[in-house]
Amino acid sequence: MREDLIIEDTTLRDGEQTPGVALSAKKKIEIFHALIAAGMRWIEPGIPAMGGEEVAALKEMLERRDEVTLIGWNRGVRSDIQRSIDLGFRAVHIGLPTSDNHLKNSVRRDRSWLLGTAKDMVKMAKDQGCFVSISAEDIGRTEPRFLQEYAVAVTEAGADRLRLSDTIGILSPSQYAERVRAVAEVSDIDLQAHCHNDFGLAVANTLAAIEAGVRYFHVTVNGIGERAGMADIAQVVMSLRQWYGVDLGIDTTHLTTLSRLVSDACGISSSPWQPVVGGNVFAHESGIHTTGMLRESSTFEPFCPELVGGERKLLVGKHSGRGVIVHALGQHADGLDETALERLLDDVRAESIALGGAVPPARLREMAAALVTQRG
């Protein structure tokens, strides 16, 4: 694994392409500043060719271009790229497909057109002093030998980075890694992983790509993006930290706040089971789990909630034992002997089933007080 890994966030570009999501300039800028505050130093903030409010937001973001590398995303169209450069982007990305499927059915061109266009677009941007990133889109359906030919062509044209886009998420981790190694065999260009989550493998594919030698990789907050989304920033950052000892410069205590900010901006609530930042990640109810947690938090947590800005919760419900009930009641457990606790445990289970969830603390105290009164 490389020691010069670079994480790049595309929440504000690919992430905003989530169906049904449209971020205002104000919301995009708020997320942008939050990403920088969390330590993100490479950001793909949007698409200049969209014009209008998008450009207004990008202009404001570009005021911080000395602090963070901002990559303007473009189609493989000369006017798009020029617009990004004129706007002030020092780094541009050029989106081009490499699979026969996309060449035929999306852009309706052939491989000769692709190779010529890629070379021309790279040269145009490099001649104006830009860092140039270029895509090989739909690598899962691109013939490996042609992917290699394309990689050599863009390398010779002067591109700084080749983005390997698994456009519809159809590669397994081993297959994605094979594509990375195949390109590395013929070119020393820096590679970037761009993985979609159609089969739930975006994070796994990103890690496999990193192990295979990519330097750059894309993430989004909450894994948002087209269809099933992309690789989630919290999952990738924490996986690299916990399993590989890699510090990407991201302040992990911001991860939960970032997640909530983006959820609110998109109007889409995150699943309580969302890894790392979900509401249930540090919540415990079952008797065995809560007993262990009351003794030592590492028994049922891979890392402490404070590390990611989360909060531990011990809930009382259908699966709880007496220990967590006593813990939850605190001084309100005074006066409850073993028999009363056993009765309260039965009552808690019945109440939890009736409520369809956890018993609120206030209701638990009422139930305990009623038992004490009855026995008094």
Score class of each variant (00 low, 15 high):
Y176I: 12
G245H: 10
V55M: 04
V246M: 13
H218C: 06
E338Y: 15
I268V: 15
G278E: 14
R161S: 06
R181I: 09
E351D: 10
G278V: 08
D160S: 02
T257S: 13
L87I: 00
Q235C: 11
D247Y: 06
H196Q: 13
G287A: 12
D166Q: 09
K59I: 05
P360I: 12
L23M: 12
S297M: 14
S269M: 14
Q374L: 14
H102L: 14
H196Y: 15
E67S: 14
E30Y: 01
L35G: 01
D232F: 04
N280V: 12
F89W: 01
R343I: 07
S106F: 15
D188H: 09
I134M: 10
T206R: 08
T373N: 10
G72M: 12
N74I: 02
D110H: 13
A370L: 08
L336F: 04
V348I: 15
S320E: 05
A184C: 04
I250D: 01
A182Q: 05
A91E: 01
A37W: 00
R322V: 07
V203F: 07
H327P: 06
A362E: 15
E44F: 00
V183W: 03
R163P: 00
M61V: 03
W42M: 13
T252D: 01
A202I: 02
R181W: 03
N197T: 15
S84W: 00
L114E: 07
E44Q: 07
T257P: 09
T256K: 08
E137M: 14
V180T: 05
L115T: 13
V308R: 00
D198C: 10
F303A: 08
E366H: 13
K27P: 04
H33N: 11
V281A: 13
G249T: 07
P19L: 09
H93W: 12
G158A: 08
E54G: 00
F300V: 06
K104H: 13
D100Y: 00
C304T: 15
I250Y: 03
